[in-house]
Design a protein around this nucleic acid. Sequence first.
DNA 1: CTGAAAGCGCTTACAG
DNA 2: CTGAAAGCGCTTACAG
Lengths: 341, 341
Amino acid sequence: MAATIKDIAKRLNISVSTVSYALNGGPRPVAPELRERVLQVAKELDYRPNRLAKSLITRRSHIVGVVRDASAHDLVTSPYMQGVLNGVLNAAEEMGQNVLVVTRLDPHDLEGAVDRLLEGHVDGLIFVATFTLTPLYAELAKRRFPYVVLSGTDQAAPSVCVDNAGGVRLALEHLYSLGHRRIGHIEGIPGHFDGRERYEAFRAFLRERNLPIEPHWVACGMFTPFEGATAARAILARPDRPTALFCANDEMAIAALGVARDLGIRVPEELSVVGFDDAVNASYCHPPLTTVRQPSEEMGAAALRTLLERIEDQSPAHLMRFPATLVVRSSTAPPTKGALS
Amino acid sequence: MAATIKDIAKRLNISVSTVSYALNGGPRPVAPELRERVLQVAKELDYRPNRLAKSLITRRSHIVGVVRDASAHDLVTSPYMQGVLNGVLNAAEEMGQNVLVVTRLDPHDLEGAVDRLLEGHVDGLIFVATFTLTPLYAELAKRRFPYVVLSGTDQAAPSVCVDNAGGVRLALEHLYSLGHRRIGHIEGIPGHFDGRERYEAFRAFLRERNLPIEPHWVACGMFTPFEGATAARAILARPDRPTALFCANDEMAIAALGVARDLGIRVPEELSVVGFDDAVNASYCHPPLTTVRQPSEEMGAAALRTLLERIEDQSPAHLMRFPATLVVRSSTAPPTKGALS
DNA sequence: CTGAAAGCGCTTACAG
DNA sequence: CTGAAAGCGCTTACAG
């Protein structure tokens, strides 16, 4: 059907090796005039290299996999995942790589998971915001299969994540310096690296400043708007509610804004809210959200580039921490006493 | 390095063909006892089939490509794309297919685009919400390469889209029956199928009801929150603004809600707003958005299944229109006179 | 039920 | 500078 190098060779009465070298422009020299003719015939025949055959020999498919585990029903619900994916995709295009998406990986079915991951022709994998998949990583490491962990860490592989502790500190310092002493927290997914680190940083800060850690000022919102709203209601419906709320991502923070409005709590006058991510929505919600920015696109791009290095030359495991920055908008202000309308 | 069927054959002193048939459980019968031993040795050697080699022979990679053109700087900014992608991924997993993502396709570089699309080992392609890529489609059709068009139509290929005309009619009937006669529109991307169809359906409805089509009540928001907000400001800042606004997607509608708030225009008392998509945000914004629901996940899944049929047996080109439904929430109400505070 | 062999479309030593 | 040949890891007619 489709033309192969054999067809070109036959047509020109030359060997396939010469065709191959001519087409690839090396590494063996080919008489320029001959090369021209090869290219000419290739075009005539609408020749298109079969990369499968090439990959079989070179052992490189130039496809990398992006992996999401089953904890996320959707691949890209969150703005954070959007940023990461865009970063990966951009970098991949730049580096001439293709991106294969593997989603809904079942972390409990180790063998099945390994099979699925290794069957996609991929040269390497990027795990994004998954539960800690240590046994799975171990299996891959045993086979010396290249992978990198994004928003997580692994002993055996390069890992990239944001400076959660620093980011949380920025957010809480901001609230503290505004005068807040009653600070609540809506937690992400406890089993996820970011959720855990942010939660722990929150507790560490309160302890450090000798602020009260009220159990009923902390609730788990699982990084989703729906559960975030439930968590916010649980915290804000109480008479002794906090004056400020730090949320582990923007989606939950925006949901909290909605809950506050429903409860007639004015933001920022009666309640300050801080998010995490700096999603697009954060500047479009009402009031515009003060949040901790994490460079998700850069992180995605870094993960891809690191993976490529890892594939090329087995570059060593290391951790890349990206700095977080505070973006102050209008959802935070000094607490006002007795404003509980 | 990794074990191959040769290694297994050698170890058992049998032929590779027998190993192959044993591993695949057919189509040639293999003595059950022998088969067991093959499987046993395969496990011992941590054998893993090289699907590249298999694909080379069977001419099926079981990878399908999802294509987005360069008009979208991000792959998955919109809730609509999230839905579609999730639908594709779900169906792909169900059908044992892998999904490769091709983004930022340059529609002006026809040859480059074709090269990129055909080089990813993919069995077929799904084009999602792209500009009309007729010449590109023609090239693929010429090569009998399977593809389907999502949110668009093509003569030569299966296409899936939503019933835009019906959906818009639902939205506008709703506004009309509430008493609105001054209706504006924030347009999507004019070069996109959905943007165009919704715009045309809007005009058709107004003509049909003999309503005024005021040029300054229509503005283009390009399906984005940012440009949507600009468009909303242009329309709403005028003294003779409309009493209702139909927006071609939810993101622009939510942006319009923000603009209305900034301008001190109360929704729905002084302005009714309707969106399109029924994104997650539509129920979390304020007020919750009345919108036209399109079943984006089902559409994505349908596109994948149709593509697979097309790959299998060259099933004929046809158009699948999915129904749209109206979801009434709180952003619409009868117009009230003289409420221009 | 099993083996020996051809072949998928390439790349790349080995010879000249 | 070029050709003839081996081989990547499989599948699948062709023989028995």
